[in-house]
Amino acid sequence: MNRRDFLKVAGSGALIASSSGTAEARGNLEPPPEAVGMLYDSTLCIGCKACVVKCKDVNDMPAVTDEHNPQWDQATELSADTLNIIKAYTDGSAETKNAETDGFAFIKRNCMHCVDAGCVSVCPVQAMKKDPKTGIVSHDPDVCIGCRYCVAACPYNIPKYEYDDAFGQIQKCQLCNQKGVERIDNGQLPGCVEVCPTGANIFGTRDELLAEAKRRVAMKPGEENTFPLGTVGSPHGHVAPAADYQPHVFGEHEGGGTQVMVVSGVPHTELGLPDLPDRSYAAVSETVQHSIYSNMLAPAGLLAGLLYFARRNTQEEGQDKDKEEQS
């Protein structure tokens, strides 16, 4: 093989390996126009955990108990038995609600129904799916192979696999719209929203919720405001003084945006929510992968080159062998 041949092969190899191929960089996916979701307002949450109980009820999941307290649910972390959890942030004397120092705050954790969901992008068999209309991210155990790539690729550690079951499956919040539940399709509210007594967790389209979230973070601390119950436009609600909000709607841009968003009085990182770049990791991953495999051109081209060399060099070898055998 001479230098030029080598460069040809090396060039095709580099084509395969480099990501700066010919495919267009894939930007973040856009939310469907009728995308639905939830807005959780940490400042209104009283930590009653009614939503945790209702979620177990709707999803038919057992309470997590310890030996000393078998009476009620003791779950402290999301798991394959707990798709929704309320956690507390405390600092110092933990006296003042919504204060970062010497204060406390609550956070509700469940699937964020990402606009550009990592779990959907990485699932080899489309067991994780984003509904084209509602944007709800659902899971189909009948096709799932259990590779748990979705677990690794979810920025929020949401999907959970049932490790203690020989035939375990992946569990995650499907916004109460999975087969057999279908609360959203039937015009009901998600379980956790329906039971929330303070309007800390409300349901709506992503656009409505985003506008409501922005209304809240712009409120003057202490000023009386109306907070709806259940949905954004609900006639039921209560009037309360606004808390001192962080000027940030978590989920507007994070990782390409989410359909479940959070506003709070303490910074989101204190509540255990990650700092994410605006460009979704799914977009980066797919851009790299499709640059390498754009229309399978690079692999096909490389294969053609390889076939040429392999043919030539195996034939030469055959001739050498024949010669040798004659001699």
Binding site: S121, C123, P124, V125, Q126, Y149, A282, S285, E286
Partner: peptide, 9 residues
């Protein structure tokens, strides 16, 4: 069922 965006596939 195949998802061509998936590196795992």
């Amino acid at each position: 069922q195949q998802n061509y965006n998936s590196v795992m596939l």
